[in-house]
Design a protein around this nucleic acid. Structure first.
Length: 892
RNA sequence: GGGCGAUUAGCUCAGUUGGCUAGAGCGCAGCAUUGACGUUGCUGAGGUCAGUGGUUCGACUCCACUAUCGCCCACCA
């Protein structure tokens, strides 16, 4: 006998261990079954589980368990990410704070990397055990880490291939420099915030110099003007047209001397500021590009004003060593003194900050590695394409489907704006760039050169470079990757896992990393192995607080900790609450009452099962019984019919990734159909243990992907089931036809009686006599007399085919069945009369609108026959009901 | 500046090719009847589907515009 409440805590860890030890999570590479693969988005190796992970794990686990039960060879491959910058900066911080090492880099590369690796090893276990807590049925035997040797091999292979195809190149560009982290970051890692700052307008060229009006320039960063090489104006701007092409000498406060050439460029906005832009090629990407376009006309060479530490370089002697901000203040002060400062206006600036450090970005000229996204050298479908074009092609041709599809637009828009991807990082933790230098020679390969004296490039690769290969670099044979004489192509050819499980089927992740990761996977994988990485992209939304705010780790009040929730309510309840009401691409609010509601659901399931198990025990049933058609009552047929429909819909929904709908459907089936009606009806003489067993069994199977723990635990108590639920086959709908129509009517009659009782304030405890005129349903009513007596609390039930309407009775009509509750001593007749009158008037209005509709020839001519038929039926029913109710009213 | 999403009951949300007198859960109100469940049962109240106009026999659903909120993208210095 089960305890009367389900306490998740008692069972979950135990069940997970049995699952894992039994090897049920392991996919068999040699099986003949059709594969179904999900690559788990690897959480940071040093992270802690948060709701974002929890929702990802819940959705993926549901999909995997469903497919596994359906007979697919389901592989869910887990792993962790080395999270280059994030991890390195955490360890550096720890070394500073905990060990007092002021400059951890002074340890040297080898030592620091070792320390980071140790740290990762220690903390990796945390995230692993937390993934288990959710119930994730992933294949731990195939767990990967982005820094594994095999993945490193793939990274190097791809780098080399791209280098040989001239898709990877090294060049000096203005890049996004994160001063606090001391590394470049890619364009996608730059965020914009709105910040109030000051727009300074000052005299750049005097009236004397121009021989007419002086030229003013507006800028929020005056200090960069110390490195200007040009002034840009719009080609059609009549104010400045005559000056284009001329070069002027400018002496800034402090003595810095520069030469600026006036150039004309269409990108200049005549209306902003003074319509003149100072061009500082080395401290602004746009300026750099403009300088490139007009290089040959511009007399002076660009200079770097600000260095990697955000300080003024010795190119500007007067301010050298100052921070940019100090320099700005001094410089503006100098302008003011010289009487050149015209105005200082507050305005809202789009400030670029680093996604990692949240500190401002300093655009700096640097020699870096890039991936060329426009070069058309990639073979795809017998065409030469650029990386951009491939990315567009596979989505446009529906080789990859994105759910929800509106994200396709966002994806295409991103590609349209995409520029070459800066992949080198000046940190030590990560895949080191496989390039070696000696004197002025460069060597690129998957292994260091044999010869002495070569120095490896000091940079590492953007962490997304290795993540971009994740779907397949995790499937290559790790023995083969150690043999450097085998080509990547041959490694892939001879890796059974890769051959069976790639391309993967679903990539499920938050929409916030569509560019960082989804797009990069598509780009890198299609290019490097000529396969798409996945067929479907399922993007879930972010979990928000009840108020719709982002949950932030720093604020425990707004932040729900999944582990804490699991401890209190169980993983199943958490899973359900994250999945029901969560539609792809939309954010969802989560709060404790909601989770509690689903905890109640698990308890409901537990108790319904407890009840059924008691009956089975009583009846000494130790095995699943065949369902015999001839023994089925109408209510048996009713529930079997509903079950069939539920099986069909649930399966269809899951195949279409409609997870929320599936959850809702099963919730209703268990609670409303099975518990509220079928179990209640089973408490009478028509109890059928075989059907109870059958329906419960199927409920457990259907719910298992969503609530794996509670269903598995109950399953272990189901007599005669030898295998674990996790490995049980998903049900196919029963081919037999079931009826169950009388039960539908009986339910309606019982509900109506309950309503009448409640409306007339007849206490539930009080049993009352009732008269029913069944008309053509008399037989059905007779068969179900005991159910009506019991479930509607009726003391005496008079069943007639038809007869004289009872006077002074509360009455209703449902399915043509007339119900009378004699009012003698029970009911306020005046109120009852009012109620009837009101209902009749409602019904009349309803009829009126139906009649109007049906007499409209435009409707009858144009609407589908089915609809018209439906409306006619409605009208007929309403008319019949109206007639009966009018007769009843006449009795008062 | 461009694009996207949201707006349905007090709250959180469903509503799938346009066709049930618009649904659920929670909350609220009233009442409690257990072969299991008070983490329960029964019943009820509560909605001009953001607004305006259009298409249609018919619009929560499609189109246009407006409003409010949110997000993404973009080289306004």
């Amino acid at each position: 006998m089960l305890p009367s409440t389900y306490e998740a805590k008692k069972y979950e860890d135990k069940i997970y261990k049995i699952w894992e030890d039994s090897g049920f999570f392991k996919a068999d590479v040699n099986s003949d079954k059709e594969p179904f693969t999900i690559s788990m988005p690897p959480p940071n190796a040093t992270g802690v589980l948060h709701l974002g992970h929890a929702v990802m794990l819940a959705i993926e686990d549901i999909l995997i368990r469903h497919r596994r039960m359906k007979g697919y060879e389901a592989l869910w491959l887990p792993g962790t990410d080395h999270a280059a910058i994030a991890t390195e900066s955490v360890v550096i911080k720890n070394l500073k704070n905990e060990e007092g090492i002021a400059n951890p880099r002074s340890l040297g590369r080898e030592k620091l990397v070792k320390r980071i690796a140790e740290y990762v090893k220690k903390s990796q276990g945390t995230i692993r055990s937390q993934i288990r807590k959710i119930g994730a049925s992933c294949d731990w035997s195939r767990e990967k880490y982005t820094m594994d040797q095999s993945l490193n091999r793939c990274v190097n292979e791809v780098f080399k291939k791209m280098f040989n195809d001239k898709l990877i190149y090294k060049a000096e560009r203005v890049v996004n420099w994160d001063v606090s982290l001391q590394t470049t970051i890619s364009d996608d890692e730059v965020e914009y915030i709105e910040k109030e700052s000051i727009l300074y307008t000052f005299e750049y060229l005097s009236a004397k110099q121009t021989g007419g009006e002086p030229i003013f320039v507006a800028t929020s960063r005056p200090e960069t003007k110390l490195g200007d090489t040009a002034l840009a104006v719009h080609p059609d701007d009549n104010r400045y047209k005559h000056l284009v092409g001329q070069t002027f000498d400018v002496v800034w406060p402090g003595g810095q001397e520069i030469k600026v050439t006036i150039i004309a460029d269409h990108t200049v906005d005549r209306k902003f500021g003074t319509g003149v832009v100072g061009i500082t090629p080395f401290h602004s990407k746009t300026d750099y590009e403009m300088w490139q376009r007009h290089k040959d006309k511009i007399k002076s060479k660009p200079i770097q004003v600000i260095n990697e530490d955000g300080k003024i370089t010795d190119n500007v002697k007067s301010y050298v060593g100052m921070t940019a901000e100090e320099c700005r203040n001094e410089f503006v002060e100098g302008l003011r003194k010289e009487g050149k400062l015209k105005s200082e206006k507050k305005y809202i600036q789009q400030l670029s900050i680093s996604y990692r450090s949240k500190k401002p970005i300093e655009p700096l000229p640097k020699l870096q590695w890039f991936i060329d996204v426009n070069k058309e050298v990639v073979e795809w479908n017998n065409k030469k394409m650029s990386l951009k074009q491939i990315m567009q092609e596979v989505v446009r041709k529906k080789e990859i489907q994105i759910i929800p599809d509106r994200f396709e637009k966002i994806y295409f828009n991103w590609i349209d704006n995409l520029q070459d991807w800066c992949i080198s990082r000046q940190i030590w933790w990560g895949h080191r760039i496989p390039v070696w230098y000696k004197e002025n020679k460069t060597y690129v390969d998957i292994q260091p050169p044999k010869e002495q004296g070569w120095e490896q490039d000091t940079d590492t690769l953007d962490t997304w470079f290795s993540s971009a290969l994740w779907t397949w670099s995790t499937l290559v044979d790790t023995k083969l990757t150690k043999d450097f004489s085998i080509s990547l192509e041959d490694i892939l050819k001879n890796s059974p896992e890769f051959q069976k499980f790639h391309p993967t089927h679903v990539m499920e992740t938050g929409y916030d990393i569509i560019f960082f990761w989804i797009a990069r996977m598509i780009l890198m994988t299609t290019y490097s192995i000529k396969q798409i990485p996945f067929k479907t992209v399922y993007l879930h939304g972010l979990i928000r607080t009840r108020e719709g705010k982002k949950m932030s780790k720093s604020d425990p009040k707004t932040c729900i900790d999944p582990l804490n929730i699991i401890e209190q309510y169980g993983a199943d309840a958490l899973r359900m609450s994250m999945v029901i009401g969560n539609t792809p691409g939309n954010d969802m609010r989560l709060y404790e009452e909601k989770i509690r509601g689903y905890r109640n659901f698990t308890n409901k399931l537990w108790n319904a099962s407890r009840f059924v198990l008691t009956i089975l025990e009583e009846k000494k049933i130790t095995n699943e019984q065949p369902i015999k058609q001839e023994n089925l009552s109408d209510s048996d047929q009713w529930i079997l019919n509903k079950l069939n429909l539920t099986i069909k819909t649930a399966d269809k929904n899951l195949m279409e990734y409609k997870i929320s709908d599936t959850g809702q459907l099963l919730y209703n089936f268990l609670w409303n159909d099975f518990c509220d009606w079928y179990l209640e009806l089973s408490k009478g003489p028509k109890q059928n243990p075989a059907v109870l067993y059958h329906v419960l069994k199927n409920i457990l199977i259907l719910l298992h992907p969503i609530t794996p723990y509670v269903t598995e635990e109950i399953w272990s108590h189901l007599p005669g089931q030898k295998n674990m639920l996790i490995k049980t086959n998903y049900p196919a709908p029963d081919k037999r036809e079931y009826n169950g129509l009388s039960t539908e009517k009986i339910i309606n009659v019982i509900t109506k009686i309950r309503q009448l009782r409640a409306e007339n304030k007849i206490e539930p405890a009080r049993k009352i006599p009732i008269t029913i005129f069944g008309h053509e349903h008399l037989e059905t009513l007779k068969e179900n007399k005991s159910e009506i007596l019991r479930l509607a609390r009726v003391s005496e039930l008079t069943l007639e085919e038809k007869g004289e309407k009872l006077s002074n009775a509360s009455t209703e009509v449902v399915n043509g069945i007339e119900i009378f509750i004699p009012l003698e001593g029970l009911v306020d007749t005046k109120k009852e009369k009012e109620r009837l009158t009101k209902e009749i008037s409602n019904l009349e209005n309803y009829l009126k609108s139906l009649k109007a509709k049906l007499s409209n020839t435009k409707f009858t001519d144009n609407a589908p026959a089915e609809i018209v038929k439906g409306e006619k039926k409605k009208m007929k029913e309403a008319e019949e009901k109206l007639e009966k109710m009018k007769e009843q009213l006449a009795q008062f």
